[in-house]
């Protein structure tokens, strides 16, 4: 009886916290389908989550007011390049730190860990000046290359690789495989969960990045989605429906990807210990 009560209370607490986390997302999505006049009017009541009248006007507005497809493609290109190149570079760096024996390895590992505590905002200005001085601005590559090497990604891979049984790699070595081949044919197939986790964490972090593209881009040809939303912050009155619709469209690809790779992500989180 007591156990049932405890389980019930635990489930209730989980439901409440899940609702608290889901409420903003639900407000965003539901609000994007409401007529402009109802969004703020309903905001203070349960009606915020249950539209009486559905409309696609806000979505029509978004496509009329900005070149959404172009900004989406820019974001996909920038983030896709960043994730793929990041997976390659950071996994190799982590493998070298976790498995290879070379002089200065502990020092480099310490250095990588130390850079984890430096926020991007602290290096944004010197990085901006340095790259501007060599004329590297206003294209998509400048939004990718500075972020390919990522200490958090290296650390996540390092933790995962360090936990893999060495016997697998030793068997490959006995069969004559070199380091790179061992990595590609033995380690990578066994580390899918880590790759999925790092990909999703990287994407979550950079998909909404605002400061760097703001500093480095001028024209729409290289501007990602987070900058495009600033188009909707015009002279009053603001059209909140358009802003919510744009937000929904911006969140959708990441959400979809997360749902698709949810299992691998959860396995990776458990294995690399990034939960909590």
């Amino acid at each position: 009886m007591r156990r049932t009560l405890t389980t019930g209370l635990r489930h209730a607490a989980l439901l409440v916290s899940a609702a608290a986390f889901l409420a903003p997302v639900a407000f965003l999505v539901v609000g994007s389908f409401k007529p402009e006049g109802r969004i703020l009017a309903d905001a203070g009541s349960w009606r915020a989550f249950f539209p009486a009248h559905w409309t696609l006007d806000n979505y029509r507005d978004v496509f009329a007011r900005v070149d959404f497809v172009r900004f989406l493609l820019n974001s996909l290109l920038i983030n896709g390049a960043m994730v793929l190149s990041g997976l390659a570079v950071n996994s190799l760096a982590a493998y070298a730190l976790a498995r290879l024996r070379w002089a200065g390895r502990p020092f480099v590992l310490g250095l990588v860990l130390a850079t984890l505590v430096v926020p991007f905002e602290a290096i944004a200005v010197p990085l901006f000046y340095g790259l501007s001085a060599i004329g590297w601005r206003d294209d998509w590559s400048v939004q990718v290359v500075p972020f390919v090497a990522n200490p958090l990604s290296i650390w996540l891979f390092y933790v995962f690789f360090a936990g893999l049984p060495r016997e697998l790699e030793e068997a490959a070595r006995v069969d004559g495989a070199g380091v790179l081949r061992t990595f590609l044919t033995v380690v990578v197939p066994n580390a899918r969960a880590a790759f999925a986790t790092v990909a999703i964490v990287t994407l979550l972090f950079y998909w909404g990045m605002y400061l760097w593209p703001l500093l480095m881009t001028a024209g729409p040809h290289a501007r990602p989605l987070p900058l495009a939303i600033a188009t909707f912050y015009t002279l009053p009155p603001l059209r909140w429906g358009d802003i919510l619709a744009f937000g929904t469209l911006m969140v959708a690809p990441v959400l979809l990807l997360f749902i698709l790779f949810q299992r691998a992500f959860v396995r990776g989180v458990a294995a690399t210990g990034i939960k909590g």
């Binding site: 000046y129 601005r137 703001l214 001028a218 939303i229 600033a230 188009t231 912050y233």
Partner: peptide, 15 residues
Amino acid sequence: PEGSYNGQVQAAALA
């Protein structure tokens, strides 16, 4: 974009 206009002007001026 209007919402980030001044930020982009300042960045362009610095660069």
